[in-house]
Design a protein around this nucleic acid. Structure first.
Lengths: 99, 99
DNA sequence: TGCCTTGTTCGATTATTGTCGAACATTATG
DNA sequence: CATAATGTTCGACAATAATCGAACAAGGCA
């Protein structure tokens, strides 16, 4: 599989990022990644079907929140911390620290 | 026009706040209020109809982002800065500073 | 090769949200 | 009281987004 397309930080859109974060399932993903650093999809799939999760990962990826690195058969996801913070300083920290 | 109900900061929900902010029209409202402090609805209505704006104000109010004070026939809106910052430190600042 | 694992894509359905006109309520003000 | 100004509410419709099973693709391994 070809690698994913990840948007350039200069093109991150605030509304897209906020929409991506404004969903419970995706917020769970983001917070989990905030704790563990990197995780493949299977690790993050809870009770929801894979196809739903795949969709959520795509939304997060397309908005710039996370990056997906392919290693063998696994897709490893991690937050794009530096890039997000460059474009929207303090935003991700506020999300990760929120109750 | 009984006064509006404004949620208690302890009950603010992150996903609700993010959903409220994740809309272009509402983001415009929030940023405008960030600059001018307080404004009534008419001041903030651009090209959109009043009924649409009224809806957006309600979403922002219900999530805790802004408060509406009634003065005569006008409804004056302002950000709930301190309360938001108490519950989600840095979040509003990140939004207002974002490009 | 055959099979298992990991995850995507497709398509259909459902659910949630946004949009906006029309009618209404309230507060001035002439 | 009649009228204007400011917003809300209602209802219908449109647009957007989430859900999820089934079929598919690719890599790793026996």
């Amino acid at each position: 599989m070809p690698a994913y397309d990840h948007p350039d930080p200069a093109t991150f859109e605030l509304t897209s990022v906020l929409r991506a974060l404004a969903d419970p399932a995706r917020l769970d993903i983001v917070r989990h990644l905030g704790r563990v650093g990197e995780a493949n999809c299977a690790t993050l799939v809870g009770t929801r079907p894979k196809s739903s999760m795949s969709h959520h990962f795509q939304v997060l990826r397309d908005s710039g929140v996370l990056r997906t690195r392919i290693e063998g058969v696994q897709h490893r996801n991690s937050l794009r911390r530096e890039e997000l913070d460059m474009r929207f300083p303090g935003l991700l920290a506020a999300i990760l620290n929120a109750p």
